[in-house]
Design a protein around this nucleic acid. Sequence first.
DNA 1: GATGAATGAGACTTCATTCAT
DNA 2: TATGAATGAAGTCTCATTCAT
Lengths: 192, 192, 192, 192
Amino acid sequence: MDAILAAAAQVFEAHGYAAGTTNRIAIKAGVSIGTLYQYFSSKEAIAVALLEQHIADTGHRLHEWVGHMVVEQHSLSEALNDYVTDMLEMHSRQPRLQHILLEETPIPERVHQALLESERQAAKTVAGLLRLYPEVRQSGLEHTCFVVVQSVESLTHRFAAHPDDEFIPRATFVNEVVTMLLAYLTCEARHE
Amino acid sequence: MDAILAAAAQVFEAHGYAAGTTNRIAIKAGVSIGTLYQYFSSKEAIAVALLEQHIADTGHRLHEWVGHMVVEQHSLSEALNDYVTDMLEMHSRQPRLQHILLEETPIPERVHQALLESERQAAKTVAGLLRLYPEVRQSGLEHTCFVVVQSVESLTHRFAAHPDDEFIPRATFVNEVVTMLLAYLTCEARHE
Amino acid sequence: MDAILAAAAQVFEAHGYAAGTTNRIAIKAGVSIGTLYQYFSSKEAIAVALLEQHIADTGHRLHEWVGHMVVEQHSLSEALNDYVTDMLEMHSRQPRLQHILLEETPIPERVHQALLESERQAAKTVAGLLRLYPEVRQSGLEHTCFVVVQSVESLTHRFAAHPDDEFIPRATFVNEVVTMLLAYLTCEARHE
Amino acid sequence: MDAILAAAAQVFEAHGYAAGTTNRIAIKAGVSIGTLYQYFSSKEAIAVALLEQHIADTGHRLHEWVGHMVVEQHSLSEALNDYVTDMLEMHSRQPRLQHILLEETPIPERVHQALLESERQAAKTVAGLLRLYPEVRQSGLEHTCFVVVQSVESLTHRFAAHPDDEFIPRATFVNEVVTMLLAYLTCEARHE
DNA sequence: GATGAATGAGACTTCATTCAT
DNA sequence: TATGAATGAAGTCTCATTCAT
């Protein structure tokens, strides 16, 4: 039941995994606790379903973004700005949820593998797009894109979870991150 | 009692915040549960103390690193490599602890402010060091350094917590991050 | 519905009374839980119906055995051997069911009385048969037969439920029980 | 805590295993539910402890009886009467408990083996006593005693659980059982 | 009649915290 | 000051039963 998952997302977001009780989820979803357990075999199963949904969701967003960029022929700078802004907005909507699912939930190995795979996939997808930009350094692009994806993921999450608007406004933050990525993608390769 | 905090760090690291019971902490610390409660008024108080210790610790490490760099006159690239390696090593030793303290603990506002302040301080400290390097772009250096600090923090944590060695080995990862920071710090300013 | 009772017998046998859920019974019977409740007002009602069926069944078996013995003119020893073997085989097929019905189900008084009555009846029936054997001591035959019936019931159940084949093989066990009953039925009366 | 075991015995006796809730046990024992779980790791552990206590208890009773008989030089008939009376009295005090522990509790294999062993031991102990009586048939005495022990166990339990005083008074019942055992123990061996 | 999704009381169990010793 | 047995609120999950379709 989607209502249960939606309720669970809100409850986990608000209370964390441990304090996000199945009863609270059921109440928020407007169903009885018994009904909840007819659709999900355990609390963990709910978290896993949520995580899988999140993984799929992130994949879709990324593909949409890539498609959009290809069609619109935005500049590299615009493309990155779009990407960072989109991710920051998404994490701001539910700043805690993703990390709760990733860090507080006992994830089955299967799902853990799916998660790693989806991150590799994301790196490849982004690489596919960036290959179209001539100013982007092509050597080692997949590793570079992996770091790009990780950077965007973790920086936007961090800022969304603990914003420090007084010190650095949101727009400035996005701008800085884009600058960093741009510099990274267009610099000469460094040899250790 | 430092023994209690040390025990708590290990227990939280191993079991998470919710499953890290006060009894387990007391046993690991070699004291009775009663004694534990004579030094800390609640489980939350332990986590907060741990977080404050962590904040102070991180500050010290940063200062030491800066001092070391100033004395040794390392190149910018070497300096960044040092920094990233150090942080990655630290997060690898206790991949979960920092995020447990940051995300699973109900932090009092006072500590939250201290945390933000320490991050601003870190940005300033790093800026102080980097100002010594002529190749570093000086405009907006504090904001830039804030993003640098955040990037190192979050990327090393992420890689330590969920390494994907098959896809990208640790050394390569460090190298890529350094490359990114180097490019970021030395690039021309971008205007939106 | 006989299908429900048959399913209930299997489910109780396999899981016990408490863990023998009405849903499992319904599934095994190939009907929905709603249908089950249209034929039986409660879980307890199913157990009671099963017990009543068991009581009737046991009565029939006994009568058949008696009829058979009368016709075939078996020796007393053969007759007892038949009886014990038959009961042991029956209890081996469903070692738990009878005791579940007797001990784990809250039996209504009416059924409890029917149960006692059926055991008295059984004693009388057996007495009716044994009276035909001249070697059987006739004094106090009904009480004696009551003990005979109880012995066979409880000993065969016990052996079926917790066999100790290593210590005493099944055939030996049957033989010993028959020997005991034979001795009991043909001995001189004892006066206290 | 012995109070908990005593309370558990009463609660199981009164409600059965499934309905004998840990809360009821705790209340009856006059402790909180938390205390109960400090002494027993689970509901099953309580039942197992109770069963082990019962096994030990039965062994002691048997030994005491044997010692008593040897010293007092009672006749075989008196000895058996003592035995049956004692067991009937014991089962009458808690008619359901033993079978609840035996049939409704998920017993670990270790305890199951201990149970079988204790029954073999009982047969041997009884055989040791009966060997002293010249009128007792000596051939196959251990198997015979096994059946004797099983008979007394199961008949007294059955009568205690579902007495039918109207049909056969308790004294008469004991008398009949003793008569049966006496006949069994002193009869000529039967050959199939 | 048949269905089965929904219900919710109540079971077992955990663990932060207290307090008499 | 140190101890640790005792507490009990609160959590996850089960299952007999109902009732709208």
